[in-house]
Write a protein that binds this DNA or RNA. Sequence first.
DNA 1: ATATTTGGTTTATTTTATAAACTATTTTAT
DNA 2: ATAAAATAGTTTATAAAATAAACCAAATAT
Lengths: 94, 94
Amino acid sequence: MLAELDPLLHSQLRLGVMSLLMSVESAEFTFLKEKTNSTAGNLSVQLDKLSEAGYINIEKSFKGKKPLTTCKITKKGMKAFEEYVNALKQYIKP
Amino acid sequence: MLAELDPLLHSQLRLGVMSLLMSVESAEFTFLKEKTNSTAGNLSVQLDKLSEAGYINIEKSFKGKKPLTTCKITKKGMKAFEEYVNALKQYIKP
DNA sequence: ATATTTGGTTTATTTTATAAACTATTTTAT
DNA sequence: ATAAAATAGTTTATAAAATAAACCAAATAT
């Protein structure tokens, strides 16, 4: 029987965000938006979901006078990502 | 920029079906249902979508007097699966 | 004979993803 | 100085997907 895939991570945009956050200390909203090629609205929604699940931390501050949203993956998020990757390997193994 | 993930394949159930079909000559509905742990309704719908896309061939016959649905992956399906796996690697690479 | 199981399909409901519209502030151009 | 446009998002609406529930026909078991 095939393994379950964490539905929170099995979404192109959320997986992309998590993948990016796995390889950096932290990332700004605009950086994630560019790298994932998503709209601001969609990204905003999906970041909230990841945050709700405790997979990332979102910090809102200001860069000069512009709002600045900074995201960081959490321990829980890293673990979930790793588990997702392991489960996925079952599906894509040759 | 992260690659696009074929939305037809980026679904747990459809991906599971395609993954299974990649490694066998053909598979019966009931086999796929068990291996993917899906409901018949959901499987039926998703098989139709894969078939619509030309990723699989569905043959309906009878085993004795019971209906028998047999699925086979197509060339197009194999190519799509391989491309999906390649795109996905971008996301899960450490 | 009727109840249950098998092998599905169809339709309805819920959930997700995406897009569109909006807000607030800030630059940039005139 | 002021209007237009860009930045950095959020909220709400719409489209698409996944899932579940209801259904059907035939076969098997009680």
